[in-house]
């Protein structure tokens, strides 16, 4: 299956990656090649096969309900590209 430019534009938008119009053709071609490559899986009969999410043959371990973290505002904010009054800041969002 080949991806058209509209599809590429849509997934780029979902992934929040800016793609210039002039890149679209090339990208659509590249992604189509990859999709064609992975589509050979359709040859495999997987009737009745349970999808494998994890190879770890175990179940989810749980932790105790204890406060062991937090209280390190400065470390959490130290790498922030932009901050004000103890908050991270971004361009204003209109709801």
């Amino acid at each position: 299956m080949s991806l058209d430019k509209a599809t590429v534009r849509n997934i780029a938008n979902l992934a929040r990656i800016e793609v210039r119009d002039e890149e679209l053709d090339h990208l659509a071609g590249e992604l189509s090649n990859i999709i064609t490559f992975v589509e050979q899986l359709s040859e495999v009969n997987t009737d009745g096969v349970e999808p494998m999410t994890s190879v770890a043959a175990m179940t989810l371990p749980m932790r105790k309900d204890v406060v062991t973290d937090g209280g390190r505002h400065d470390a959490v904010m130290a790498n922030a590209p932009e901050a004000e009054d103890g908050f991270f800041t971004v361009p204003k969002v209109v709801e």
Binding site: L41, S42, V49
Partner: peptide, 15 residues
């Protein structure tokens, strides 16, 4: 289903 779920099933067959 066509891609991700299918790949997870094939993954089991490989394992």
């Amino acid at each position: 289903d066509a891609y991700y779920a299918k790949a997870q099933k094939v993954r089991r067959l490989i394992a």
